[in-house]
């Protein structure tokens, strides 16, 4: 039985995290847009990587 070679699919979801006591999470259009907004408002950007094979 030949070992099948896994096909790795990697994608990233960029989220902008803001808010006070409770986080408000909004999807960003792009990493650049998220970084620009984060820098302006002292927010965090979450980059969630998904792998599937």
């Amino acid at each position: 039985m030949a070992k099948s070679r896994p096909t790795l699919a990697l994608c990233a979801l960029v989220l902008l995290v803001a808010g006070g006591a409770q986080a408000q999470v909004t999807p960003a259009e792009s990493l650049d847009a998220a970084l620009t907004a984060a820098q302006a408002n002292n927010q965090l950007v979450i980059v969630d990587f998904y792998a599937d094979w």
């Binding site: 995290v17 970084l35 620009t36 907004a37 984060a38 820098q39 302006a40 002292n42 927010q43 965090l44 950007v45 979450i46 980059v47 969630d48 990587f49």
Partner: peptide, 8 residues
């Protein structure tokens, strides 16, 4: 991964 506005 969490990064700040500077991408750090």
């Amino acid at each position: 991964m969490a990064v700040n506005g500077k991408g750090e």
